[in-house]
Design a binder for these strands. Sequence first.
DNA 1: AGCCAGGCTACCG
DNA 2: CGGTAGCATGGC
Length: 225
Amino acid sequence: MRVYDALMDLYGPQGWWPLGPSVRYHRGEYRQPATPQAVFEVYVGAILTQNSTWSGACQAMTRLWALKAMTPRGILALADEVLQEAVRPARYLRQKAGYLRDVSSFYLHLKGRVPSRDELLAVRGIGKETADSILLYAHHVPVFVVDAYTRRILVALGRIGGDEEYDMIRSMFEKELPGDEIVYNEYHALLVEHARRYYSRKPYGAGDPLIRKFRTRRVARKDAE
DNA sequence: AGCCAGGCTACCG
DNA sequence: CGGTAGCATGGC
């Protein structure tokens, strides 16, 4: 929580998920109208932004919107070629076009129900980070989202060695934090904001003002024996 | 010019 | 199991 507070002092509330073309997110609005449209856009954005930029994902979503395909049925109705062309700015166009189809039919089968983490993980194209992002940002389930940036920051602060399992890192946070959706929402977003500034280029953490304040001596290296 | 994105799956040993 | 090559890009 001390690191969280420091990040909040630095950057202020982030108000994630950034969302797509249909819904304009306003700072501080965490309980936006959870329309099926907005919920589905989180699914789509979560796939499109994988190992990619938000700018690219957003361009792809704008193309889908223009094709009136920002819905599960709309996506399933597109020809492969058209869907892939829409996805292009988000990289991996064949892969992600396929993922979007699988996610779309999965979403239809839900019929508005909130899926479990395991159900999400069974969908091709949804791994752990994507599943947790969907649970948190689409369905308001309090889970902590771990990503590559989270790892880098924790390594720099001496809290992990770096090769820990995803779920181990997630439970580190969930044990320390109050089970508050808004804290999980903001914390992940703040870590991304912070990492974009200090952890996107090697050497990771150079110039990070938090290191002085929060770095622990004890580094949990696995190969320390 | 080069480096880097908020991963995931399939396939290898 | 753990490790990693490969995935049809665009922006700073």
